[in-house]
Simulated assay, not measured.
Amino acid sequence: MNNPAWTRRQLLKATAALGAGSALTPGAFAQTPWPSKSIRFVVPFAPGGSSDIVARSTAAELTRLLGQSVFVENKPGAAGNIAMVEVARAEDQHTLILGHIGTLAVNPYIFSKLPYDPIKDFQAVTLLAKVPSLYVVHPSVPAKNLKEFIALARSQPGKLSYGSAGNGSAGHLAFEYLKAKADLFVLHVPYRGTGPQLTDLLAGRLDAASVGASAILAHIKAGKLRCIATGSTQRLPQLPDVATVAEQGFPGFEMTQWYGLQAPANLTAANMARLATEAVKAVRSPGSVERLHADAAEPVGNSPAEYAQFIAAEQKRWKAVVERAKIQPA
């Protein structure tokens, strides 16, 4: 160490080594396996609805497949806009959001200035599941089926009320769709999520609602709510005695909620590719299929391109419904 020449040589070698290490760092970082930490899966609605059921089932399977915890975080507000904006701006490569008929296909037409672009700000990963909408009433309402409910509503226009998880929510759209087809006047009462809405419906403070099957099957089977029609194209195995809306005088009627997986637009191509592959495996896994079927939800799992095409078709469909019903944000 007392030799100045030796010291200089060592210093030069050390400096070269540090330089080489610095040059390799970006490449090494880019090749770090993804995910490298827990993934936040945001649900833009309050707990208690079909969105929660689909999200938590998917999260459980993705945790197993990705090798990192995928945790669900409910972040309701402003018809889902608050959560959508936050996730659109996420830059950590570990934040995802549950796509929904409202945030992706309806909000663009009920808000004059939407704070996010459902197409440009997000990547469509896969369509996770479809959930039939059920039309239900509180047991105190004297209507055993849809025909009787329509007759009752027409006999006292504006006196019956129905609740929804909020303006532009799937339940709001489903009931407005029915009102348009059946020429009804039933008062709409918006809530901040399915959970709060169900609390008042079960208590009899609301007369009716349209809710995803997953969230209310247990209440129907317990006799706390009466299902008067299903929005599905065929009768549900869980409710074989309940006729569809189409069977009760409205041929071709179909109303299903749907839920997908969206990633921020800045998720890298490699990470997106892995996420898309594992997400399809997750929703089609035996455990997920069993859980979703038990709640009358139909798992899908398609390619990003197919899901993107589906969203475009839904936007076209619901734009017409929003304009006809003159749906406005709360």
Score class of each variant (00 low, 15 high):
residue 175 F to S: 02
residue 243 A to Y: 12
residue 177 Y to R: 09
residue 252 G to K: 14
residue 144 K to Y: 03
residue 174 A to M: 02
residue 324 R to V: 03
residue 321 V to M: 02
residue 316 K to P: 00
residue 115 P to M: 05
residue 133 S to Y: 01
residue 245 V to F: 09
residue 248 Q to G: 08
residue 15 T to D: 07
residue 14 A to G: 09
residue 219 H to L: 02
residue 275 L to S: 07
residue 70 V to N: 05
residue 16 A to Y: 12
residue 201 L to Q: 06
residue 51 S to K: 06
residue 305 A to L: 15
residue 93 Q to K: 08
residue 2 N to A: 15
residue 105 A to W: 04
residue 294 A to D: 02
residue 168 G to L: 07
residue 35 P to C: 07
residue 44 P to Y: 13
residue 105 A to C: 15
residue 80 G to A: 11
residue 188 H to S: 09
residue 133 S to F: 03
residue 222 A to K: 14
residue 43 V to S: 09
residue 95 T to F: 15
residue 325 A to C: 06
residue 316 K to G: 00
residue 37 K to H: 12
residue 71 F to Y: 06
residue 76 P to W: 07
residue 72 V to D: 11
residue 238 Q to M: 06
residue 185 F to I: 14
residue 237 P to Q: 04
residue 34 W to Q: 06
residue 236 L to P: 04
residue 263 A to P: 00
residue 83 A to I: 09
residue 31 Q to R: 10
residue 112 S to Q: 08
residue 138 H to F: 06
residue 312 A to H: 14
residue 226 R to I: 12
residue 206 L to H: 08
residue 12 L to K: 04
residue 235 R to Q: 05
residue 89 R to V: 01
residue 207 D to V: 08
residue 83 A to K: 04
residue 173 L to M: 05
residue 240 P to C: 12
residue 180 A to M: 12
residue 161 S to I: 04
residue 106 V to D: 01
residue 2 N to D: 07
residue 274 R to Y: 09
residue 109 Y to V: 01
residue 217 L to Y: 01
residue 169 S to A: 13
residue 149 F to M: 09
residue 322 V to T: 02
residue 104 L to K: 05
residue 180 A to C: 02
residue 29 F to W: 07
residue 262 Q to V: 00
residue 237 P to R: 10
residue 131 V to Q: 06
residue 66 L to Y: 03
residue 91 E to Y: 13
residue 7 T to C: 08
residue 269 A to D: 12
residue 202 L to P: 01
residue 53 I to T: 14
residue 272 M to H: 07
residue 142 P to I: 08
residue 171 G to E: 06
residue 14 A to L: 12
residue 152 L to Y: 12
residue 170 A to G: 14
residue 209 A to I: 07
residue 138 H to P: 09
residue 15 T to E: 05
residue 84 M to P: 06
residue 304 P to L: 14
residue 128 L to M: 15
residue 56 R to E: 15
residue 63 T to R: 00
residue 266 N to I: 04
residue 320 A to V: 07
residue 91 E to N: 11
residue 294 A to P: 00
residue 33 P to T: 06
residue 99 G to M: 13
residue 279 A to E: 09
residue 190 P to K: 10
residue 106 V to T: 09
residue 21 G to Y: 15
residue 327 I to M: 15
residue 315 Q to Y: 00
residue 311 I to G: 05
residue 295 D to G: 10
residue 172 H to N: 10
residue 299 P to D: 09
residue 34 W to M: 15
residue 148 E to T: 01
residue 239 L to A: 10
residue 67 G to A: 08
residue 258 W to V: 00
residue 214 S to H: 10
residue 39 I to P: 02
residue 137 V to R: 02
residue 131 V to R: 08
residue 248 Q to D: 04
residue 4 P to C: 11
residue 11 L to V: 03
residue 100 H to I: 13
residue 32 T to F: 10
residue 162 Y to W: 08
residue 33 P to Y: 10
residue 164 S to V: 06
residue 151 A to F: 11
residue 7 T to R: 14
residue 103 T to V: 09
residue 175 F to R: 00
residue 75 K to R: 13
residue 316 K to Y: 12
residue 55 A to F: 02
residue 64 R to I: 01
residue 6 W to K: 08
residue 304 P to T: 02
residue 63 T to Q: 00
residue 268 T to C: 03
residue 91 E to F: 13
residue 319 K to G: 07
residue 135 Y to L: 11
residue 327 I to Y: 14
residue 63 T to Y: 07
residue 254 E to I: 11
residue 32 T to C: 07
residue 125 V to E: 01
residue 45 F to K: 09
residue 250 F to M: 10
residue 56 R to I: 05
residue 82 I to W: 10
residue 159 K to R: 15
residue 324 R to I: 10
residue 114 L to T: 00
residue 320 A to W: 03
